[in-house]
């Protein structure tokens, strides 16, 4: 039948292997093979950011990323942020600040925010706003999301290591 390609990657800090179709997106792979439903299919054309994941340290729309492109990469999804050390500062800040309403955009927002903070822990409000431009939220009006990203940068500063 259709051509399959074997790939291996580090997914949420665990080495995994998968057999992927040539037309399969990273988003489809995460859901089909790994039962990771945090990244959402909301537009399928890279316009809304609900499927955002981090690949080799950069945020990507997983709906537009071919699954085969994950071969040899380091991939982080929202599920990987809650570890035995606790939930990520961004997740905690989204909860605390009221940044979650329907929550459908939340995993993508959190991953984009995590990427922005990894790149620049002292990020300014203007940079946060610009950095979230590709992520659509229909519920919150963005204010509490922006506040959460600011809050997360403060939580990070205060935390050891």
């Amino acid at each position: 039948m259709s051509l399959k390609i074997e790939i291996s990657l580090v997914l949420n800090e665990t080495k995994v292997e998968a057999s992927v179709g040539v037309t399969e997106s990273a988003l489809e792979l995460l859901r089909r093979e790994f039962d990771l439903c945090g990244a959402k299919l909301a537009c399928g054309e890279g316009e809304c950011g609900a499927c955002t994941i981090i690949v080799d340290g950069r945020s990507r729309n997983s709906c537009l990323t071919p699954a085969v492109d994950l071969d040899g990469r380091d991939v982080m999804t929202v599920e990987g942020l809650w570890t035995e050390k606790g939930v990520d500062a961004v997740q905690q800040a989204f909860i605390n600040e009221g940044a979650v309403q329907c929550g459908y955009c939340t995993p993508g927002m959190i991953m984009q925010a995590r990427y922005l903070l990894n790149r620049n822990p002292d990020i300014s409000e203007a940079e946060i706003i610009r950095g979230l431009e590709g992520n659509v939220c229909r519920c919150t009006g963005y204010k509490k999301i922006i506040a959460a990203v600011k809050g997360a940068s403060r939580i990070q500063e205060g935390s050891p290591g």
């Binding site: 439903c37 929202v78 599920e79 997740q91 605390n96 929550g103 939340t106």
Partner: peptide, 21 residues
């Protein structure tokens, strides 16, 4: 008061399964 939404922790950690999932 300011009260944390009951569904926020599960949504922020992607424990929530939506109808689409």
């Amino acid at each position: 008061k300011r009260v944390t939404k009951l569904d926020a922790p599960d949504k922020a950690t992607a424990r929530t399964r939506y109808i689409n999932d």
